[in-house]
Structures are given as structure tokens and as C-alpha cells.
Amino acid sequence: MNIKNYSAKLAIASVALVSSVITFAPKAIAQTASFNFNGTVNTDCQFNNLGLGQNFSSTQPLTESGGNLTGSDNTLAINCNFAGAELQITDVSQSPSNGGALIVDESNLDATATLSNATAATLSADGNTSSSIQTLNAGQTDVDLVFTADFNNDTATLTAGTYAYDVVMTLTNQ
């Protein structure tokens, strides 16, 4: 065997060896993982961020002025994550705990709710009539509620006693 043939055979064997490694190299094994996250956010409107089924209640003092009793409350905020909920003053009445002089004609009881921020509007109701229905926008709507019991008594002082009235606002998720 001469060196020239040996070198040629070695070169051919080396090329064959390298070619087999390159040609027959095992394929890389690749894997992927896919993660899906999903959920549903239900439509929701709440008085002062209360939980489902909880009711908001506030007791505010009445002041006498010109033969009337008035009271106000601006602590109510309504938070909606959608547009379309409905708000209405559904009842203005004498409270069963009213120990003072009763007003025979409940039409003399008035409640006005002024809405601001996400929804700007005014709702008015009396003891005989509910307010119109106001559709709310998404976001926070602040409510400034004013109550008046009009005794049709511009100058006289009201009889001493306990006076109590209820204003009911109803919020409906559509």
C-alpha cells in the first residue's frame, strides 16, 4: 500500500464518516406547551360596592325650615361595569316608625336625586308617583339625594315629635 493510496483512502473514509454524521444526525425533539386562560365577567352594578344581595341603608337627620322638613344624603355611589343598568326612585313614604304628625297626603313628600359623573340626570318622585327610569352609563355615578316633607305650613312651627320617612331607590341590572 503506498502512501498516496493510503492518504486517498483516508480522505475518502473521513469524508464518508463526516457525511454520515451530518446526514444521519438524529433530529432535535421540540415540544410546545399552550396555556389558555379565560373567564366571564358578569354585568354588575352596585350601590357603594356592596356585594350581590346586600342593600344600602343610610339614616340622615331632618331639619325644619319654614314649616317643612328636609334632609339630604350624598354618600351614595353606584358603580357599573357596563352601560344599561336602570335606576329609579320607587317609593317615598312615611316610615312605620313615624311618631310625629302624619301627613295625610303623601304627594307632599318629595325626593330628588341628582346624578353626576358617569351619568348626569335628575330623578324626582313624590309619595304617589315613582320617578322616571334613568339608564346608567358604565363607571361611577354619584347620587345626591334630597328629601322634603312639605307640611304646607310656611310660618308655623311643627308639632314636637319624631318624624321618619323612607326613600327607596331601585337599581336593576339589565
Score class of each variant (00 low, 15 high):
6 Y>N: 10
6 Y>G: 10
7 S>I: 14
7 S>F: 09
7 S>T: 09
7 S>N: 04
9 K>I: 12
9 K>R: 07
11 A>F: 06
12 I>C: 05
12 I>K: 02
12 I>W: 00
12 I>Q: 06
14 S>C: 11
14 S>I: 15
15 V>G: 10
15 V>Q: 01
15 V>M: 07
15 V>A: 15
15 V>T: 14
16 A>I: 05
16 A>Y: 02
16 A>K: 02
16 A>Q: 01
17 L>Y: 11
17 L>K: 01
17 L>D: 02
17 L>T: 12
18 V>G: 06
18 V>D: 00
19 S>Y: 02
19 S>A: 15
19 S>G: 13
19 S>V: 03
20 S>I: 03
20 S>V: 04
21 V>Q: 05
21 V>E: 00
21 V>P: 00
22 I>W: 07
23 T>L: 10
24 F>N: 14
25 A>V: 07
25 A>M: 06
25 A>R: 12
25 A>W: 11
25 A>G: 12
27 K>R: 11
27 K>N: 10
28 A>Q: 13
28 A>M: 06
29 I>Q: 08
29 I>H: 10
30 A>N: 14
31 Q>E: 09
33 A>D: 04
33 A>M: 01
34 S>E: 12
34 S>G: 01
34 S>N: 12
35 F>K: 13
36 N>W: 01
37 F>A: 07
37 F>M: 01
38 N>L: 00
38 N>T: 03
38 N>A: 08
40 T>L: 12
40 T>F: 04
41 V>L: 14
41 V>H: 06
42 N>W: 00
42 N>T: 13
42 N>C: 00
42 N>E: 10
42 N>S: 14
43 T>Q: 12
43 T>F: 00
43 T>A: 07
44 D>E: 05
44 D>M: 05
45 C>Y: 06
45 C>K: 07
45 C>L: 05
46 Q>I: 06
46 Q>Y: 01
47 F>I: 02
47 F>C: 08
48 N>K: 06
48 N>L: 07
49 N>A: 13
50 L>R: 14
51 G>W: 00
51 G>S: 15
51 G>Q: 09
52 L>W: 01
53 G>Q: 10
53 G>R: 03
54 Q>Y: 04
54 Q>T: 14
54 Q>P: 00
55 N>Q: 12
56 F>I: 02
56 F>Y: 15
57 S>R: 13
58 S>A: 15
58 S>K: 14
58 S>N: 14
59 T>S: 15
60 Q>S: 15
63 T>F: 07
63 T>I: 13
63 T>D: 03
63 T>G: 06
64 E>C: 04
64 E>A: 15
65 S>H: 02
65 S>F: 03
65 S>P: 04
65 S>K: 08
66 G>L: 11
67 G>F: 09
67 G>M: 02
67 G>I: 03
68 N>C: 05
68 N>A: 09
68 N>L: 03
68 N>F: 01
69 L>M: 05
70 T>G: 11
70 T>Y: 00
70 T>V: 04
71 G>K: 03
71 G>R: 06
71 G>Y: 05
72 S>D: 07
72 S>I: 01
73 D>L: 04
74 N>T: 13
74 N>C: 01
74 N>D: 14
74 N>P: 10
75 T>S: 15
76 L>S: 09
76 L>H: 09
77 A>D: 13
77 A>Y: 01
78 I>M: 08
78 I>K: 09
78 I>C: 08
78 I>V: 15
79 N>Q: 13
80 C>E: 08
81 N>I: 04
81 N>H: 02
83 A>W: 00
